[in-house]
Amino acid sequence: MSISSNILRQTSYPGIITAMENNLVEFIMYCSCIPGAQAYHSSDHIAAITGIPQPSLNVVMRTQMDEQTILARIQEVMTPFKVRQVPMLWWIFPGTRPANLGQYLKKSGLQYNGSEPGMALELSHLPAALPQIEGFSIEEVESAAALEEWIHVSAIAFGGAAASIDPEYVRFEQCLGWGKDLPSRRFLGRLDGKAVATSSIFLGAGIAGLFSVGTLPEVRGRGIGTAISMAPLSVARALGYNIGVLQASPAGYSVYSRIGFRECCQIQTYLWSPQ
């Protein structure tokens, strides 16, 4: 079965929100293929622990819990994260139950980590051509050397430093591999030959999820963020995908709005970290 054989055509927000959550679930499960990872589907939640000390790679999602027993259930679900001492996120989408789950997570020792807008775009509305920026080019990551550059730029773009990149995270990205036949694909932007921007896409649940959009601080405000966002979406459209989704940071919201993304929900996260 080809990647493009299950394309979501429904454009109503309830359908898109469900697919957005499913896309993230499939992405996290895909990331859990690395050695030592744990992932499981329960009747009332989904959990994945990669073991990488990055909260977004150790998560609980799609919660449907009984409020009468929820505090005990949360403690049960948290046990493997606490045993492995890895930071984690508990995701709350609009369909999460109970609706007041956040109150119980706080009582259980998790901290509110904020809310981000979930945004969606019909890819038929994506501009036909990428913005033209002098000296700027975009390539797909298809080698170990390009992946090393992608990791380096992404770390700095998201407020880190190249010297502090966790070797475990590097091995994690290497384990995911690269290639046009995979559902997860990375893109690298260069300005006058220097790697300056990153993005990635995950093709799952019938839609295209946009991730890891970042540019180096010194090249922001030149349209590079727009171009590096559009490149993977254009690839998804060429494969026959109809819907693109993302979770927008405050810095990226205006960029995505200009491309044509529209907010369709708010997505909350709660954080637990080892002391």
Rank of each mutant, 00 (worst) to 15 (best):
P183L: 03
P183S: 01
S184I: 08
S184K: 14
S184H: 15
R185W: 01
R185C: 10
R185A: 02
R185F: 01
R185V: 03
R186F: 13
F187Q: 05
L188H: 03
L188R: 05
L188W: 02
L188A: 00
L188P: 05
L188E: 04
G189P: 09
G189M: 05
G189N: 04
R190G: 03
R190I: 05
L191R: 14
L191C: 07
L191S: 12
L191P: 11
D192G: 07
D192W: 09
G193M: 12
G193R: 13
G193P: 13
K194F: 09
K194Y: 09
K194T: 15
K194D: 15
K194P: 07
A195N: 12
V196I: 07
V196P: 06
V196K: 07
A197R: 05
A197L: 09
T198W: 02
T198G: 09
S199Q: 00
S199F: 00
S200V: 04
I201H: 00
I201K: 02
F202L: 12
L203F: 03
G204N: 05
G204Y: 00
A205N: 12
A205L: 15
A205C: 10
G206I: 04
G206C: 10
A208T: 02
A208I: 02
A208G: 02
G209K: 09
G209C: 09
L210A: 07
L210G: 01
L210C: 08
F211N: 10
F211C: 05
F211W: 12
S212D: 15
S212G: 10
S212W: 11
V213Y: 00
V213A: 03
V213N: 01
V213L: 03
G214K: 10
T215E: 14
T215A: 15
T215F: 08
L216M: 14
L216D: 10
L216I: 11
L216G: 12
P217H: 08
P217N: 09
E218V: 09
E218W: 08
E218T: 10
V219W: 06
V219Q: 08
R220T: 10
R220L: 06
G221H: 07
G221S: 08
R222G: 12
R222T: 13
R222I: 11
R222V: 13
